[in-house]
Write a protein that binds this DNA or RNA. Structure first.
Lengths: 245, 245
DNA sequence: CGAGCGATTGAACGCTCTCAAAGTGAGTGG
DNA sequence: CCACTCACTTTGAGAGCGTTCAATCGCTCG
């Protein structure tokens, strides 16, 4: 069940006098936090809400970057490819995360939905104008980009220096902490992505991911539950295993 | 020879009526670009310039983040450590790069000089005030953070999916392109960091880095020159090897 | 029930690591 | 000027972790 009815929201946003943002339950998590009602109305005027099925490409590496997006529900993956098809997933985005920052007017990665996803779409030009008008939002976006940068550095440590088991434990921990930060329960963890996606995120193969889950399961550290959920037996144990200590 | 005399600059900045920024030759590369003369003066009032020997720690992971820095000459490395001492270098910073973005009021990484380095230091509080006053600078900082984010994603692809040879070639190419962007010649490439630093940046060991350089040297793709410089025989060949195609 | 896709398991390989030793070069002091 | 030190780099040999290739399992859906 999505946090609010996007179908209705879309209809509303077509009527420019309404402003769905005011009622948006995920606003506090994201770039629109701390905007005044009139500012929110201005924002609502330029955005369009979208509902996208799973496994759909939002945009591809190299595409002209003509919009920013904000995830309001679901999960999106970002990835880069090498010429021979090797893939690196650089992030899984969930409720409250934004995507679409670009460097040379074009996207540096492909964005694809993992689950059914709802998003707010902000046309770049209009968004830039608005950012100039609302320094508060600019600041917020900068702060969120800083957080992403820190997360990227954590991921570099993981990719460059951690073992398969440490990678998997770090991954579960990240999902758990992220869920907690969004007000969901942190255990069991909902893992909507495939083994292949996890592998491409952690710099492993699907086989190694599968084997490592089996090991953790056998050792009693975790157990798989219905509906792609993973129960962490002892959070501290997983935490220690995530850093090799 | 550093791009300008930092010793004199420091004296000047102690006299609040002068403004060394106006004469700064690297301004166009960095966060101070496109500021008006009076804004530059305001900036000069809050910054202090520093000259730091090689292998000195500027700040450590977890330290209270009380300043932003701007590299005006030299090379700085950023790294994170695991409890058992494994290290991941997340970036090498050169002229024009900034460092010190923090998340929870504390630095997420350690910063250490590779070579003798000169920097501008901006106290965080004063910098934040100034950023609010100068949206242009805020925007510029955001744009630079976006570029860093894109570079971080490239690095994830490298760490997660590239072979040792591809990593080394990508690294050389990055150094070359970076030098070109700063107006230096792109070949031969100046490589001031040790094998150990390169290894910790690329997720390899020093031995593998050394062996890979030897391979490239033997195959004629590169040759080592005096003064830590590497001559790339054919840029296109290196480019292809960097992506496995 | 059968097709098809993802996940799991098995066996063997190989790239990179680990451990070890030798080589190189800059700096120091006799 | 040379011997010595010390840190860094290079080279070698062997081992191991994760990969590759392949087969089986299990679930979903027509």
């Amino acid at each position: 069940m999505p946090p609010f009815d996007m179908g209705r929201a879309r209809e509303k946003s077509a009527q420019t006098e309404s402003h769905p943002c005011g009622a948006c339950p995920v606003r506090s998590l994201t770039v629109c936090a701390a905007l005044e009602p009139d500012e929110l109305r201005r924002l609502a005027d330029i955005l369009q809400t979208m509902r996208v099925d799973s496994s759909q490409t939002l945009f591809s590496e190299g595409d002209a970057a003509d919009a920013l997006y904000n995830v309001t529900a679901g999960t999106v993956k970002l990835y880069k490819l090498l010429p021979d098809g090797r893939r690196q997933i650089t992030g899984f985005l969930v409720t409250g995360d934004f995507l679409g920052l670009a460097v040379n007017e074009s996207y540096a990665y492909t964005a694809e939905t993992v689950t059914t996803t709802t998003l707010c779409r902000f046309p770049r030009r209009k968004m830039e104008t608005l950012l100039d008008e609302f320094p508060k939002m600019q600041r917020r976006l900068f702060s969120m980009a800083s957080n992403e940068l820190a997360a990227a550095q954590d991921q570099m440590l993981l990719l460059g220096r951690k073992t398969a088991k440490e990678k998997i434990c770090s991954f579960l921990l990240m999902l758990s902490q992220r869920a907690a930060r969004r007000g969901h329960k942190d255990n069991p963890v909902f893992v909507p992505m495939s083994r292949a996606d996890i592998a491409d995120y952690l710099g492993l193969t699907t086989e190694t991911v599968s084997r490592t889950f089996t090991q953790l399961k056998t050792s009693g550290a975790i157990s798989l539950q219905e509906g792609n959920k993973i129960l962490i037996a002892d959070m501290d144990v997983i935490y220690d295993m995530a850093e090799g200590s």
